[in-house]
């Protein structure tokens, strides 16, 4: 009798675990929870981890599409990390998917900061020599996590010797800190406008050639 019950319970629980594992919303949530838990240094540092998880491991989106989604996320106001997860979740499973992904990104940070606000005074963290040493090691690694996708995205963006001047100029001008011209929004507008003009121009040329034939 008891054996039977335990066998039934076992199979039921296994079915539930399987169902949970197959649930795409739960997968989205847990993937972005993981990403959110290890994102030091803001949204740009997420890119390496997102690439590994979303593009390489789960194959949810292609590298090239990832770059387009990144452009959308960057051109909207708000927190970059949340924007990226929203747009990826939406592309995969619509609004429900974006809620799952955004919640996953927000929750780790929310829980950790709330614990600190309730239980710790900021000074105990700031003056802790162990934590300070650990974070001296983490910060340069985070910079590396942002350099790596520069190379990988340059490949998937199809950058060649002729177009390599665009990312270099954009990076240096933003870095310069000059007024107006160091604003990323300027380059997003110029990039979209330039791309559109080039695209339609090429289209027209192709049509002209077809007519001549």
């Amino acid at each position: 009798m008891f054996e039977k019950i335990s066998v039934i319970l076992h199979s039921v629980s296994q079915q539930m675990v399987m169902k949970l594992k197959d649930n795409i919303y739960l997968q989205l949530f847990s993937t972005f929870f993981k990403i959110g838990s290890f994102t030091f240094g803001g949204g740009w540092a997420m890119i390496s981890i997102i690439q590994r998880e979303i593009v390489d491991k789960h194959h949810w989106i292609e590298e090239e599409e990832f770059l387009d989604l990144l452009a959308i996320a960057q051109s909207m106001p708000g927190i970059l990390a949340v924007n990226i997860s929203t747009v990826i979740g939406d592309r995969l499973r619509g609004i429900k998917g974006s809620v799952a992904a955004a919640l996953g990104t927000i929750l780790p940070s929310f829980i950790i900061i709330l614990m600190i606000a309730i239980f710790l005074t900021p000074d105990t963290i700031k003056n802790d020599p162990t934590l300070t040493a650990i974070f001296k090691g983490i910060r340069p690694a985070v910079v590396a996590l942002i350099i790596a996708p520069v190379i990988t995205t340059a490949k998937s963006a199809g950058i060649n010797l002729k177009t390599v001047i665009i990312p270099i100029a954009v990076a240096l001008l933003i870095y310069s800190g000059w007024p107006v011209i160091s604003n990323p929004v300027v380059f997003i507008v110029l990039g979209a406008l330039g791309g559109y003009l080039y695209f339609t121009h090429r289209h027209m040329e192709q049509r002209m050639e077809e007519k001549e034939c």
Binding site: L67, T153, G191
Partner: peptide, 20 residues
């Protein structure tokens, strides 16, 4: 067309984040 032009710009944006 816009995305075609945006892709190299996004690469530059990531690079600028690293530089900064």
């Amino acid at each position: 067309g816009s995305f075609m032009g945006l892709r190299p710009v996004v690469v530059g944006l990531i690079a600028s984040a690293a530089l900064l």
